[in-house]
Design a protein around this nucleic acid. Structure first.
Lengths: 151, 151
DNA sequence: GCCATCTGTAACAACACAAGTGACATGACG
DNA sequence: CGTCATGTCACTTGTGTTGTTACAGATGGC
């Protein structure tokens, strides 16, 4: 579990959902992601709350896209996940009153904030549709019956 | 232990070492960082291997700066620590053959690489001396404020 | 030589957090 | 009502930093 892969996984799922146009159960999605249905429901809860997907219980239920991919950016998904920590490094809070530590953390925070801003700006500028289109291009390039995951 | 604070801690220590000009034992440093001497030795081992600090055993031993702060950048310290993972998020490797996952991860990796490059460039452009100078400025500003308050 | 001091490491527990898993209540069809 | 699916809780697992204890090795003073 080296990295938090929720963002990547959700992007993956959303694009697949768009391709199927049918509702997908947590179980189908979990096989798509090679994981567990509970993990899927847990992770997608945030997307539901933001209105990017909707879920229905009972017979024939499951998950459906509630918006076109062109209206969802990577940043939207990231935010829907609760804005998880981007960085693995961070400031030390061992001696909050030490001016040296403050100066160090300030310099570090500056650099990290710049990088974070760049990353979030980048995520906000890419829609899921763009990635889906890129995928289509790849698919044709391979000119294959190459599989798209579990489908 | 939310974040990896080794970089921040090492910057903190190095600046203090420069101000003291004497060798500091792991115990002194550990109190500086509000931690344990073993943690200090473990973390500073990388800095020693790169020649930024040197350590001496036995009586009167301890750690000393082996280079002026002006010749050490934040990036140097980061590298000396073994280039720990910068990001907490990352791609999912659940279905390496899935073209959708590949497209998603590629888009994500692009954005992250840009942010990483920016951050490392930023770290490489700042020397420890600059932070130390900033600290000195803060120190003076504070004592000035203290005087004005007292008056 | 002997002893106090300090580094260098190994070994292991603590802790945080994503991820995996089982159990079960709830709601929606047919 | 029975089945299928979500919603959620509680618990375990895996991984990496951090904290801690224990001990071997080197150094300098007596």
């Amino acid at each position: 579990m080296r990295n938090d892969s929720r963002l990547s996984r959700m992007l993956h799922v959303l694009i697949h959902m768009d391709r199927h146009e049918h509702s997908a159960t947590s179980e189908m999605i979990s096989k798509m992601l090679n994981t567990n249905p509970v993990v899927v429901r847990r992770t997608m809860a945030g997307l539901r709350e933001r209105g990017y997907v909707s879920s229905e219980k009972g017979h024939g239920g499951g998950w459906t896209l509630a918006r076109p991919l062109s209206e969802i950016t990577l940043l939207d998904v990231y935010n829907a996940l609760g804005e998880p920590h981007l960085f693995a490094i961070g400031p030390a809070g061992d001696q909050p009153q030490c001016l040296v530590e403050q100066a160090v953390n300030s310099a570090l925070a500056d650099a990290m904030q710049e990088a974070e801003a760049l990353l979030l700006r980048r995520l906000g500028s890419v829609t899921l549709k763009q990635i889906a289109d890129e995928f289509e291009a790849k698919l044709e390039a391979r000119s294959a019956a190459a599989y798209s995951c579990a489908s």
